[in-house]
Design a protein around this nucleic acid. Structure first.
Lengths: 192, 192
DNA sequence: GGCCCGTGCCCAAGATCGTCGACCACGACG
DNA sequence: CGTCGTGGTCGACGATCTTGGGCACGGGCC
């Protein structure tokens, strides 16, 4: 058979090129052509590994989720359950430049999910991940083995709302304020 | 001088055409061409009234905000402060088909605000409107004349998060559930 | 009443985008 | 050593937003 390249490795390489573009020029500059140029190839070459631009965004979104999961897994879980819960959830907020860029991809994919089924499916999985983190935090706070679904859903909505505000209005919702508001919500959950 | 047309009336007419397209085909179909065709004109004619597509979206967003403000103003304010607060805030959630369409425009403009200054400015104003509603609700619940900024900001973030979930995952966040989660949050605010 | 010129509008083109088809090159297998 | 399938490029297509040039109309002025 012909020459064989490692598709997964190539996709990862292309994804790295995409993130370089996103970090440097913002998510709006992440076009097929600019990513191909960044990687040093022709735009058509990308089609062998990502059939559509949405597939690229989906792959980038998987990277975002993997990064978040790794940050959470790397947490040492020291301190009170309340402190652990807050730290875990803060890993999901765009509190530094890198995570702002990641959240930009998240928001772009959210808008695209309104019309693109593939984007919608990926957003649903990312949503699951955040929901599980919220449920984990609720379990930590209440001491119960199973979280109240409504309490977790409310925390989940607050998280996404804080992320949205931190992204769109960073001057009104700086990282410290997002952290404080999250902490206040966790306090009320712990109290009840 | 030459023939004079009422620019405001023409803009309103174009905005109505846009909303017909959005209601029928979704926000993804709201291109300059489709809107011009819906209004019966050429795409270039739109440029006299909306220089860019973002201006169209901004005008549509102003309509969304005006509709929401009107819904809130039309509320008869009967019932307990707790009930009034919930009803007012529910006017800001995408609980029916029309408001889902309006929220689609909101999300599209949010994504565009990442790169487009005009969209960003309009989103900031829309954000102000929601924040004021949240502050009003907090005042109702606490009985204080001035709301706690952090409490209002938390409620605001929850509102936007609920709206986002109702929009992206309506099967997980149906209108009844969004209402219930909002109500639960208001209960905890009233209790503290 | 007739001319002017500015507004309104269309046509065509430019720029950029995502996507696709046709074609070429290389290299592993038979 | 030949074959053919994979990898890659080039060019083109269609759609999009945007822009410039030009035509038509009609209100104001002489």
């Amino acid at each position: 058979m012909p020459k064989i390249v490692d598709h997964d490795a190539r996709r990862a390489e292309l994804a790295r090129a995409m993130w370089r573009v996103v970090y440097r020029d913002g998510v709006g500059a992440a076009t097929v052509r600019s990513i191909a140029a960044e990687a040093g190839w022709s735009p058509s070459a990308l089609r062998h590994y990502f059939a559509t631009q949405t597939e690229l965004l989906v792959f980038a979104m998987e990277h975002v989720q993997a990064e978040a999961a790794e940050r959470i897994a790397a947490d040492d879980r020291t301190g009170s359950p309340r402190e652990v819960a807050q730290r875990v959830l803060e890993h999901l907020l765009p509190l530094d430049r890198q995570r702002v860029r990641e959240a930009e991809v998240w928001l772009l994919l959210a808008a695209r999910a309104q019309t693109d089924p593939a984007a919608r499916a990926r957003m649903a999985e990312a949503d699951d991940g955040i929901r599980r983190a919220a449920e984990f935090a609720v379990c930590l706070l209440t001491g119960e083995p199973a979280p109240d679904p409504d309490v977790a859903a409310g925390l989940h909505a607050l998280l996404d709302g804080l992320a949205l505000h931190a992204l769109l209005h960073p001057e009104r919702m700086p990282p410290a304020r997002a952290r404080a508001l999250l902490g206040a919500h966790l306090d009320t959950l712990a109290a009840s």
